[in-house]
């Protein structure tokens, strides 16, 4: 997936300074690859192949080795995502306490399948492994926040609160 036109895969001067700061934190600069990819995702919205090549250049790595890393971890998005990401836990405790109902409700409300993004680009819906908040099962992650003890009413309120 190529970056959409207009998204320039290029860090600003300040971001490049942050890259260098991160690289200097570790005994080997390669260790900053995950943090820099996180920075890239924040800056470019997702990690396109161009972004992988760009980051590879910042680390003197072959693009294949960056691609290995990007495809290994679930938190790197390789395609544009919605403005908000809703990740419903489907692991054991949440499953016992109704994760499937929560997910079905969200699919219906948003009109998307798991992995899909609403046509308005607002929400990407995911179904994920244990987020380690089983005490609030069934739960989900909404961007940076954990939301638990989910009911249809609560899901509605959370969705309404999203900008």
């Amino acid at each position: 997936m190529r970056a959409p036109a207009g998204v320039k895969v290029q860090f600003t001067g300040g971001q490049l300074q942050e890259v260098r700061r991160l690289q200097a934190l570790y005994p080997d600069k390669r260790a900053a690859l995950l943090p820099v990819l996180q920075l890239a995702q924040a800056a470019f919205g997702y990690i396109s192949l161009e972004a992988e090549e760009y980051v590879a250049g910042l680390f003197d790595l072959s693009p294949a080795h960056v691609h290995e890393v990007v495809t290994f971890y679930t938190l790197f998005f390789r395609e544009p995502k919605g403005r908000h990401v809703v990740s419903v836990c489907h692991n054991l405790t949440c499953h016992l306490l109704g994760a499937r109902r929560v997910l079905a409700y969200l699919k219906e409300r948003l009109g998307v399948e798991v992995g899909g993004t609403t046509p308005d680009g607002k929400v990407t819906l995911l179904s994920v492994e244990c987020l380690c908040a089983c005490e609030m099962a069934p739960m989900m992650q909404v961007d940076d926040r954990y939301e638990g003890h989910l009911t249809p009413e609560l899901v509605d309120r959370i969705l309404e609160g999203l900008g």
């Binding site: 072959s62 294949a64 080795h65 691609h67 290995e68």
Partner: peptide
């Protein structure tokens, strides 16, 4: 030269080149 990698994980792991 580092052209090849193993991408993805689990039983979807596959060797390949950077696209």
């Amino acid at each position: 030269t580092g052209e090849l990698g193993i991408f993805q994980r689990g039983d979807h792991s596959e060797i390949g080149l950077f696209p």
